[in-house]
């Protein structure tokens, strides 16, 4: 089965143009095509200058996020057949600077991620000879959801808070902080406090909740941030009530 559609694609070629434009590509598509298949078809058969990122085409590498008809999507998981509009508009992810065409600059995320110490901070180091840290399936379940983030940037693109104030740490980074805070092997919550429980951190989030809606991996960053707010608020309250046991 093949059908015809038009892709209206955002073009920005900084070497030649100062303003972005839209370019229309009309093409036949198969029923099982995702938007990424159409973009690859364009690049191979129509216009080899179109630039975009992609790799695994199975929804796990996180490269191919774009705005499809104004919504942030992984284009390898977004089927053309699901759009009944005459044309489908493809733009680079919102809120990020555009390097070229559909390629965004995600330096900001890469700089913020290490700041929340997204690695295991155990209470004390255990030698390998002593085997693994025990962790029950229930304990795994407590953080597992927040460990599923593929860093695709869709949540940043959906977050107006980030759009208005790029100093906001943002959904994915904070969800990863929650992932480690909730891990029974981890004892780094206090170490992460300076970045996470900061004005630009969880307290900047006004809970629009759209990050969770657009997350292709069901990570629920909005939930992670609200949980962090509760746990850091309780921690603060404990330090006020029992200053000595708070440990700092």
């Amino acid at each position: 089965m093949s059908d015809r559609t038009v892709l209206d694609v955002y073009r920005y070629l900084p070497d030649n143009e100062s303003e972005p434009t839209f370019q229309s590509y009309e093409l036949d598509y198969q029923d099982n095509w995702v938007v990424l298949d159409a973009l690859n078809h364009i690049k191979a058969e129509i216009d080899s200058t179109l630039s975009f990122r992609w790799s695994c085409r199975m929804g796990v590498c996180g490269s191919c996020g774009m705005m499809v008809n104004g919504e942030p999507k992984l284009t390898c998981e977004t089927f053309i057949r699901d759009y009944d509009t005459q044309t489908i508009t493809i733009e680079p992810l919102s809120h990020f600077p555009v390097i070229r065409d559909l390629v965004i600059n995600m330096d900001d995320f890469m700089e913020k991620l290490p700041r929340v110490s997204p690695w295991l901070i155990p209470d004390e180091d255990k030698p390998l000879e002593d085997g693994e840290y025990l962790q029950t399936p229930a304990q795994v379940a407590h953080y597992k959801r927040f460990s599923m983030c593929i860093n695709c940037m869709l949540c940043y693109s959906a977050c107006p808070v980030y759009g208005l104030d790029p100093s906001f740490t943002g959904p994915a980074v904070l969800a990863l902080a929650a992932r480690y805070n909730l891990d029974s092997r981890d004892d780094g919550m206090k170490e992460r406090a300076a970045e996470v429980s900061a004005h630009e951190g969880i307290w900047e989030c006004t809970y629009v909740g759209e990050c969770t809606q657009v997350c292709p991996k069901d990570v629920d960053p909005a939930g992670a941030i609200q949980m962090l707010k509760l746990s850091y608020a309780l921690d603060w309250a404990r330090s006020v009530v029992m200053p000595r046991s708070s440990g700092s």
């Binding site: 693994e132 399936p137 795994v140 891990d183």
Partner: peptide, 17 residues
């Protein structure tokens, strides 16, 4: 084991191993 110590969320048996 090293990966486990770095935080890899390996699937677990009910006893935590």
């Amino acid at each position: 084991l090293q990966l486990e110590h770095w935080g890899c969320p390996w699937s677990r048996d009910p006893d935590g191993h």
